[in-house]
């Protein structure tokens, strides 16, 4: 695979508020055209990292590079940003807001207006274009804000918790739009604490906890490197015999009333597992999967993994 140029790079960025170091030496690269996931629980320092990338606040230490150069104010126009905290001009009309925010990103007012109409169409909001923001539902306002962040077709879009507060239908809509934008060549940095979403969309992730990197890389490699597979099981029989037979080779065991899940060590193949099943246990369903990101994160943070 040809190594792509990093469109965005952070180099040891740090930020301290008061006595609390919120971001502590975060370094990562986002290559052009990637869908990059910035992951971590609430309060991990994701938003502060993003604000430093956007130049809304300056890092105490370290640098942010955009297209290989130190990011200056000029780069603001090439980056789209959906902040985690939602808010728009309540008294203004939808189309006016989009036109204004597009123009701040360097679009002409007429092309901002035209593109905004197309996007409102795409997001099922075209009838609301002359409605005041305050009259929109929360989900609608979020769509408008999302449009504002990508209206000027930025090279890089930074979406902070884009799915928060959306109903399932709109979540699917957002997902498909995000994937579409990626298809069109936009680089997307998606920040979320919702691991399943990131897992579905991103090809590369960077996980932070308490301001520090805990895990990063290509998603398949991370899963591979986690060193355990997740087994889901439906069975009949006495579960305690399972523990007796497999002992240390299975972990995080949760068994109850005929179903359960646990991890098996790498190298301990599903085939071997079935052959060693104790008598009296009858398996009706069995799946062996790469672990979900959520579990990898939890065990990484707890420090009980070698991943």
């Amino acid at each position: 695979m040809v190594k792509q140029m990093a469109i965005l790079e952070t180099e040891g960025i740090e930020k301290t508020f008061g006595s609390k170091k919120v971001v502590d030496g975060v370094s990562f690269q986002v290559s052009e055209g990637a869908l990059f996931g910035l992951l971590g629980p609430n309060g991990a320092g994701k938003t502060t990292t993003i604000r430093m990338i956007m130049g809304i606040i300056e890092p105490d230490k370290g640098s942010v590079y955009f297209r290989g150069e130190k990011r200056g104010d000029g780069a603001k126009k090439d980056i789209g940003y959906l902040p985690e905290e939602r808010g728009l001009y309540d008294e203004a009309k939808v189309l006016d807001v989009l036109e204004y925010l597009g123009s701040l990103k360097g679009m002409s007012r007429s092309s901002a207006r035209k593109d905004a109409m197309d996007w409102l169409d795409r997001m099922d909001l075209s009838e609301h274009r002359d409605v005041k923001i305050k009259e929109l539902s929360k989900g609608m306002a979020q769509k408008v804000q999302f449009i504002a962040s990508i209206l000027h077709s930025p090279e890089l879009a930074i979406l902070d918790e884009p799915f928060a507060g959306l109903d399932p239908v709109n979540q699917e809509l957002f997902k498909s739009v995000v994937l579409e934008l990626k298809e069109d060549g936009m680089t997307i940095l998606l920040s979320s604490h919702r691991m399943n979403m990131v897992e579905e969309l991103c090809d590369k992730i960077f996980m932070v906890h308490e301001g520090r990197e805990v895990l990063s890389g290509e998603l398949p490699l991370i899963k591979e490197g986690f060193g355990k597979d997740l087994v889901n099981l439906r069975y009949s029989g006495d579960p305690s015999t399972l523990r007796d037979v497999f002992g240390e080779r299975i972990s995080e065991v949760e068994l109850n009333h005929g179903s359960g899940s646990f991890y098996i060590e790498k190298g301990f193949s599903p085939d071997q597992f079935i052959r060693e099943l104790p008598e009296g246990i009858e398996v009706t369903e069995l799946s062996v999967k790469k672990p979900p990101l959520h579990d990898i994160f939890v065990s990484t943070v707890r420090g009980d993994s070698n991943g």
């Binding site: 604000r51 956007m54 130049g55 809304i56 603001k76 126009k77 980056i79 940003y81 902040p83 905290e85 939602r86 808010g87 728009l88 001009y89 309540d90 925010l101 701040l104 990103k105 804000q145 504002a148 962040s149």
Partner: peptide, 10 residues
């Protein structure tokens, strides 16, 4: 309402 973030990111 944090719109300042959008403006200051532009």
């Amino acid at each position: 309402n944090r719109i300042v973030e959008i403006v200051l990111s532009s």
